[in-house]
Write a protein that binds this DNA or RNA. Structure first.
Lengths: 337, 337
DNA sequence: CTGAAAGCGCTTACAG
DNA sequence: CTGAAAGCGCTTACAG
């Protein structure tokens, strides 16, 4: 346990016989320093193992090089990929990300937002389910750039990135209709706030309406979380209907995989008796039996895009209008539908 | 874009007609404040929307409430679960985690370690592949508590948590031997540093030796990364042998899933022609076809344990010897072996 | 080419 | 019950 006090810039200065000002400048190179003193200072820095204290520098420079990533749950396989996209972009500019899991619970979303604003971080990437523009006030008031992730947001109060999932689910639904199936269900209308499920349900409805098929409310199964368990539950409800659907569009792959399990348990053959399509194309989608037909969601690119939007305001000092980036998604036809 | 300057403790103080000292104390409750002034201060705080500046507080209190999680890749499904375990423990004590992806590259591991020490963070959870005790000097010198994750570490320089995977792979190997298979391969000896693969190979060898079966070096396929692709490659090599193995133990599930795909491509039936067992029991393991026999790795508990070890030094000011927590793992028999 | 001093926004001995 | 002042470790006008 041999830790002596960490060396400060003053230690370096006195040992090198110069002022802290000069030490600071040899490090930042923001003004010329005589070669001889520069060398001397560098030697002492090396000898003492001096490293500038990041916090002190941040306080002074009003810049922390830290960004918050607020998501529902890193354990949901969509987010690690998005997080990686974000981090790869941030790392290039020496920014790091603090990740917060909210479980999509409004109270937690608000708490983390406030905590991150208080710290403060330089920017926030927010994947919020229950959040409304009003809730973002703390961040905007503090002048902290924000990127909202989700197709349901409009760029009124922050930059926005999202997937064009309304078109995506519509495409998936049309794919089913084209197979001659017209009794199609949907699992995953979020019982809580608005959430991204709204746009996906919309796409599903778009396709049906476009083909002149009347919407049947009982074919839409709401769930509280986007997990296998809830997907299974939703599927049980749908299959328990007097006249069960012949195909089901799911709000995401996890839910679809849950539904898949239940279908088989209940003796339904997939896709013959009931076809299933997911959303996201997580790694597991291609691994289940049968491999899942799904809509590929460009998670990594989404994370990158969010990072770039943020960095444009942090490092390129962009101050223009809020922007909206909508990434296309596309159907990946496999065997479950 | 209506952000006025963030209110400081001085703003509150002057507006409330008291000293910053008093404002600080009504917030920290570390000394009594007259009820009337307390109320007055609270009102002003509310009015101005004042929130203490976390950085300033951290600098003064020498405590940042931030922990670094340094891992190879959040995209590898083992880590999100471990990260969640860690974060759930941290959140209770108002700590947050910054996550760093090193891709298991030594240079990156060192760079992030240094960066986090410089910040500084209060503690570090390190899942290092290429790291040696020497490399941790920057952290220990700075007196920053460290938790090393991996079965290959001994608690000489930091607290350690790991899975008993030597015993786990031995159990898996014995399971195959008990099925009458004695030509068994191993995919995933890491070509780079020591890494956790060493202990898993050891377990595999333990079981063979125990049964008096001689080790065949050509049956051990080294790979550079623990991915599906590399797993596939390793399997191709093994199946290309003049006398291919009848079963394969894989360093983790991703590798096993890669191997599974290749086996089928090459016309081998699993488990009849070649049995496959993985390690970790990630979510996808139960979803592939056939469902993977694997060794369950308690990722979430591992993350929790790491968090608790860290917090014991950060909040309970434990200063005793370094501890080592080894969590048991167990075989989950499914259909691939 | 270099330094003294102020200040980022807090907390906490010290004093009354 | 309360406040003035020092200090956490930096950076940066300002001055010479």
């Amino acid at each position: 346990v041999t830790h002596r006090r960490r060396a400060t810039i003053n230690d370096v200065a006195s040992q090198a016989g110069v002022s802290p000002t000069t030490v600071s400048h040899v490090l930042s190179m923001r003004r010329p320093v005589a070669e001889s003193t520069r060398k001397k200072v560098l030697d002492v820095i090396d000898e003492l193992g001096y490293q500038p204290h990041g916090l002190a520098r941040s306080l002074r420079m009003r810049q922390t090089n830290t960004v918050a990533l607020i998501i529902p749950d890193i354990t949901n396989p969509f987010y690690p990929v998005a997080a990686r996209g974000l981090q790869d972009v941030l790392t290039d500019q020496r920014y790091t990300a603090t990740v917060c899991n909210t479980d999509g619970v409004r109270q937690q979303e608000l708490a983390f937002l406030e905590q991150m604003v208080a710290r403060p971080v330089d920017g926030i990437v927010f994947v919020g389910f229950e959040i409304t523009p009003e809730d973002l006030r703390p961040a905007t008031r503090a002048g902290i750039p924000l990127v909202l992730v989700g197709p349901q947001f409009s760029p009124e109060i922050a930059d926005v990135v999202g997937t064009d999932d309304r078109v995506g689910t519509a495409e998936a639904t049309r794919y089913l209709l084209d197979k001659g199936i017209d009794r199609i269900g949907f699992i995953g209308l979020h019982t809580g706030g608005v959430g991204p499920s709204r746009t996906r349900v919309d796409g599903y409805e778009d396709a049906l309406i476009q083909r002149g098929i009347s919407l049947q409310p009982e074919l839409v199964a709401p769930i509280g979380n986007y997990t296998r368990e809830e997907g299974a539950q939703g599927m049980r409800r749908l299959l328990g209907l007097p006249e069960p659907p012949r195909a089901v569009v799911c709000v995401n792959d996890l839910v679809a995989i849950g539904a898949l399990g239940v279908a088989r348990e209940c003796g339904f053959k997939v896709p013959e008796d009931v076809a299933i399509v997911g959303f996201d194309d997580i790694e597991a989608a291609s691994l289940v039996d049968p491999p899942l037909t799904t809509v590929a969601n460009p998670a990594y690119s989404l994370g990158q895009a969010a990072g770039r939007l943020l960095l444009s305001r942090l490092t390129s000092s962009y101050e223009g209008d809020y922007r909206r980036i909508v990434l296309p998604c596309h159907l990946v036809a496999r065997d479950s539908a």
